[in-house]
Write a protein that binds this DNA or RNA. Structure first.
Lengths: 160, 160
DNA sequence: CGTTCATTTGCAATTTTGTTTCATTGGAGC
DNA sequence: GCTCCAATGAAACAAAATTGCAAATGAACG
């Protein structure tokens, strides 16, 4: 997979295929072909190309966290003290390495990082804060938001 | 798919299978079988069961937003004025319906909702704020964070 | 300790799906 | 109008998923 996504030319077929795949990537290519008016091989070639170009990043099963005992979703805004390139890179790799951190973004605004964390219990979250925030002397402060309802969860993007 | 996930008994096999699937759900069942020491049909039955139980929510392709011209990721904390059940439900369905809103959580803390938004440009975001926030008289205030780097993005959960 | 019953498994056969081959089509440029 | 190039569909082929079935496993009970 090529890493930088320059400006891959995606036509209408590609976009329709993507729309289907990001809803259900187990859809048979023949079915996709019927939906977009293309033969199965044509669909397959386009999918293969988009994978190689990095348009399609991954193909995954989405697991219900509750089913595996990870029932609490938490947002954290983290503000750091020093924002040198080195310190930021350090924080990024630390956050990226934590299994409990499902998503991590480096942002502008009143915080530096926003984290999405999944844990089995608040006790686990508390332990995590000790390890990740109190145990890191470049963290100035952090603010916690506990999710009561995961209203809409996904990684779908508008393609049309 | 059964909606409520009661207490599905997941054994070690199931968890190992899930770990593989949420990394790459195109892995052949035979390969999974080799990895977990089970025959392909056994793997397939377990996957089928976990789909029916709702342990596996969906199977999707992950698309690189930039590749489809959606290059800006934005976090928004939304605070509402009235938190009656009715008003909250109203807000939930409104946010859930917006294609630009990739994720929406109802949270405790200094905000009521946290949104993850994907748009092609800041102009689009500005238009969206007018429609969604300024055009909604139950929104007290909202705070915007623009993502400079998507350090870690996914929906994987710890299964081990 | 042995029997029974329900569940899960592996193997083999079948069906479905993915992949490759190859001749054809439809333009773009000359 | 001709050539070249890229993309396509039909058919053949390969690989994977799914099903049927008999055997193995394990727990409950006598």
């Amino acid at each position: 997979m090529r890493n930088p996504v320059h400006q891959p030319h995606l036509d209408d077929f590609d976009r329709k295929i993507l729309a289907i795949l990001q809803r259900d990537n187990m859809t048979p290519q023949r079915t996709i072909g019927d939906a977009v008016n293309l033969s199965a091989p044509a669909v397959q070639r386009r999918i293969k190309r988009m994978r190689e170009e990095g348009v399609i990043r991954a193909d995954v099963s989405i697991i219900e966290p509750q089913a595996v005992g990870q029932s609490i979703t938490i947002f954290v805004e983290v503000e750091v003290i020093s924002e040198t390139a080195e310190q930021i890179e350090q924080a990024k790799s630390e956050f990226a390495a934590a299994a409990e951190i499902q998503q991590c973004y480096y942002v502008t605004g009143e915080a530096d990082f926003i984290l999405v964390i999944i844990v089995p219990s608040m006790a686990d979250y508390e332990a995590l804060t000790r390890r990740l925030f109190f145990g890191n002397n470049n963290v100035k402060r952090f603010r916690t938001f506990v999710a009561m309802d995961r209203v809409k969860v996904g990684l779908g993007v508008p393609v049309g």
